[in-house]
């Protein structure tokens, strides 16, 4: 990649835009999540502050900003403060290779999906650090769960993405969008329905959302790895959790749902519509399914998702080979 002022300014502007997107996304998603939870549980949800309670999330984030940062005794202070930062910083990089629209790609990286997977690994490290550094038994238990879960669910997720990479022959997200058409039957979801299903299940596991939210299961672990965090420390974890949710939704939209291509008029709006449809799906799942047990969670992954994804990958490779021999 050439080093020029244009690309430099482009990266800085896009990182600033990504930060704005992260904050706006967290505020909007909290409102949507609480309203949907209320709807599903037959109660109104937030309705007091502003019309239909729309300002509630803004007020909550103001309160979070003004909150005292409380450090418990006997913590490893360096690691305690490093953990939220390592959760937040890599997320900024993760959005760089995503093609939001035909002209809205921050950095056209050749190995885009590898960049995302590589820096997403730092998120696990931050969970571990938080659980370890806060000198709390709930924290350590939550961190141990977070690790065994993300290490497990990363594998079928990569396998599902890999089968799409097999189809396209490229790790570049822009090229993957280019290889798909505007109409739904030209998207990769029709060529790879199993991969889509596996990815959908493992993205809920990877982002620690209910019914797979064992690392922060409040009924048994208080809040898991972020039990001891308050104020801005908690806010950073919270922001990066929602940003990770949005990121896996964007990757899903890019890989399986045609990215910015859609019926009638291509453009960045299709990426956002698709990604937010997946976000709403995740919220819907969260409030309608009970939490699974931890051994069930790992059994779903190792005994079902992993063999299925290997089989899917093998079938994709075999069919591609046969087709390339015929044509």
């Amino acid at each position: 990649m050439d080093l020029s002022i244009v690309s430099f300014v482009q990266i800085i502007v896009s990182v600033l835009l990504v930060i704005a997107l992260m904050v706006a996304n967290a505020v909007v998603m909290v409102y949507i999540e609480r309203k949907m939870a209320g709807f599903i549980q037959r109660r109104p949800g937030p309705y007091e502050v502003g019309p239909y309670g729309t300002i509630q999330a803004v007020c909550d984030s103001m309160k979070l900003l003004a909150k005292q940062v409380f450090v418990p005794g006997n913590v490893d202070w360096l690691l305690y403060f490093l953990a939220p930062v390592t959760a937040f910083l890599p997320v900024l990089l993760l959005y760089l290779p995503i093609p939001f629209g035909p002209y809205l790609t921050a950095m056209n990286v050749d190995d885009g999906i590898l960049l995302i997977l590589a820096f997403a690994g730092l998120g696990v490290v931050s969970n571990l650090l938080a659980g370890w550094a806060s000198n709390n038994k709930y924290g350590v238990l939550g961190a141990a769960r977070a690790v065994s879960q993300s290490v497990a669910y990363e594998i079928p997720m990569i396998m599902a993405l890999l089968s799409v990479v097999f189809l396209t022959g490229s790790l570049n997200l822009t090229e993957i969008v280019d290889s798909q058409g505007s109409w739904p039957w030209q998207w990769n979801i029709f060529a790879q329905p199993f991969a889509f299903f596996i990815y959908l299940v493992s993205l809920i596991g990877e982002t620690n959302r209910a019914p797979f939210d064992l690392p922060e299961a409040e009924s048994e672990l208080t809040a898991g790895f972020h039990t001891e965090y308050s104020g801005m420390g908690f806010a950073l974890f919270f922001l990066s959790e929602y940003a990770n949710m949005l990121l896996v939704s964007f990757v899903c939209a890019t890989f399986f749902l045609g990215g910015w291509k859609g019926p009638f008029l291509d453009g960045f709006w299709w990426t956002f519509i698709k990604a937010y449809a997946i976000m709403v799906f995740m919220v819907w799942i969260r409030w309608t399914f009970p939490r699974v047990r931890f051994d069930q969670l790992l059994n779903i992954n190792w005994k079902w998702l992993l063999p299925l994804s290997i089989l899917n990958l093998w079938l994709t490779a075999a069919i591609l080979k046969i087709l390339s021999k015929i044509y």
Binding site: V109, D110, D111, L114, L115, L117, A118, F119, A120, G121, L122, V124, V125, L128, G131, W132, V140, A143, A144, V147, S148, V151, E154
Partner: peptide
């Protein structure tokens, strides 16, 4: 870049996390 991302994916995302996990599961 391929080697760089693989370095992060394997050494930071897998090896370090597993060593960390071992530290955590043993004597605290």
């Amino acid at each position: 870049p391929f080697l760089a991302f693989m370095q992060l994916l394997i050494y930071v995302g897998a090896v370090c996390v597993l060593v960390f996990f071992a530290v955590m599961l043993t004597k605290n």
